[in-house]
Design a protein around this nucleic acid. Structure first.
Lengths: 102, 102
DNA sequence: CACATACTTAGGCATGTGCCTAAGTATCAT
DNA sequence: ATGATACTTAGGCACATGCCTAAGTATGTG
């Protein structure tokens, strides 16, 4: 999964899909890359479980798989230094202490 | 940086260093890999800004660079679906509501 | 049915990555 | 000074990755 996100093109695709699902040609449009190349990226993302896709007629719609990035988000949280984890607790503390915004 | 973390060996190194800094030979010990190969991994991690190292005498001590993973942690947070972001707010809400543990 | 559209498959090439062995170099210990 | 220790540098090999073009296949449209 990290390997899937290690490529700039694929990260850009993820960022695009974070806004909303899209069909292949929509996703491909911003890139100056042959379609098959981009399809390969989509495949890598799908194999990594980052995105899902469904084909209706001749159009394939791709979307970010909900919760897919959680594992990573969590792992990353675990590898942080004690000082940073302290900062996290501070954040929660502030959330408790100053109930300003929703 | 994601490329640096995309390798299992390097992730294992990061997990080791998350516990505490260590010298090269300590880091290398658990791996059945020639030293130069592991050094290469350390170099990739250092170039990516994930770790720092200092050499004293003939010993090099490597440590996780504080805050290094924050950028990633943040980016990951941004790419999550609306539903998940809602879950985050719920988490904060719970932290405010049930002040059980520190 | 003929043709455009939206992918898909196949194959190939250049470069990158991970690993190795062999041979340094710079301390530290005796 | 001699040798051990702890990396470091250099070079090489196998396979993975990212990109391409060319040629399908399947599905709408007139």
């Amino acid at each position: 999964m990290l390997r899937a996100l290690a490529d700039p093109t694929r990260r850009a695709v993820v960022e695009r899909l974070a806004r909303s699902p899209a069909v292949v040609s929509e996703i491909a449009a911003p890139f100056s890359m042959a379609l098959p190349s981009l399809m390969q990226h989509l495949r890598v993302l799908e194999d990594a479980g980052v995105v899902t896709s469904e084909k209706h007629g001749r159009v394939r719609t791709v979307s970010l798989r909900p919760g897919a990035l959680d594992v990573l988000h969590l792992w990353l949280g675990e590898q942080r230094t004690p000082a940073e984890q302290h900062a996290d607790r501070l954040g929660i503390h502030l959330a408790r202490t100053s109930p300003k915004e929703s």
